[in-house]
Design a protein around this nucleic acid. Structure first.
Ligand SMILES: [Zn+2]
Ligand SMILES: [Zn+2]
Ligand SMILES: [Zn+2]
Ligand SMILES: [Zn+2]
Lengths: 133, 133
DNA sequence: GACGGATTTGACAATCGTTCCCGGCAGTAG
DNA sequence: CTACTGCCGGGAACGATTGTCAAATCCGTC
């Protein structure tokens, strides 16, 4: 067994920079967008490093990740615990939503068909009020 | 406005071959897998053509498409109308499921937050009874 | 059945997000 | 301070998908 935090993690400037960006960011953003933001702020970080750190943060459940229609992986700081997202497809603004009913429904459906180890993905996309104007 | 069927579609051997494969196929499969199947059956079809025809079929709502974790797009012949999938992550067996409750919930949540033009994605993954043994 | 214009095909190059590699840099324990 | 080791960066590699464009194929028409 590995202890839950098997992390001889080092506190590097790059790691701090990425974490800082994600702490401020409101909606979902791609690795490349975050890389660009860092460059603009002068805290340049290598693209590979941005990818690595985002994945690490996501693995540690400090970020949520989802894929958009273009196949890009988007990241966002999120509350812990199981939830889903309502995302504006224009500006990226995101609302975390929970739906106990949905959770129960999904599990029930799966069980009815004899499936085990069930998990599900659910995202809602739309255009937010501001962007609709 | 384009009329719903703006399709001067030609009835080519390749188009028939792809459609035939999809008609038989039980689970979801990637464009490359379908390309391989065609090759095995001797009805060789160019990879680009397989991609094009699958997309065309999906656009015509004759196939459902979804992306797996590896970023590949998978296709499957499905009934028309809005529905979701319960997919075995081992053998790919797929069950189409409907959940009017979920649909209403998703739309309501989006509306509560002022979102328009709402759509959603929902897939359930698990291990089917046969594969669990 | 042959003809001609439009569509489709297919081999190959190009794209694009992401991952891999590896020499060099920089936290960190002692 | 020193040594150890993980981390960084940038450039090559990857893999799914899309674009290109001449050649092949359809299909309505003659
Ligand atoms: Zn918006
Ligand atoms: Zn859920
Ligand atoms: Zn199965
Ligand atoms: Zn639905």
């Amino acid at each position: 067994m590995s202890t839950t935090s098997e992390s001889p993690q080092r506190n590097t400037r790059q790691r701090r920079a990425v974490a800082a960006i994600m702490a401020d960011l409101e909606g979902f953003a791609s690795a490349q967008q975050i890389h660009d933001i860092l460059k603009q702020r002068g805290e340049s970080v290598g693209l590979s490093t941005v990818y690595r750190n985002l994945q690490a943060l996501a693995d540690a459940d400090l970020l949520d990740a989802l894929r958009n229609d273009d196949g890009e992986t988007l990241y966002r700081r999120c509350s812990s615990g199981h939830h889903h997202h309502l995302v504006c497809r224009v500006c990226g603004r995101t609302v975390e939503v929970e739906g106990p009913t949905v959770e129960r429904w999904a599990d029930a459906v799966a069980e009815d068909h004899g499936f085990r180890d069930v998990e599900h993905t659910l995202e809602i996309f739309g255009t937010c009020g501001d962007c609709a104007s």
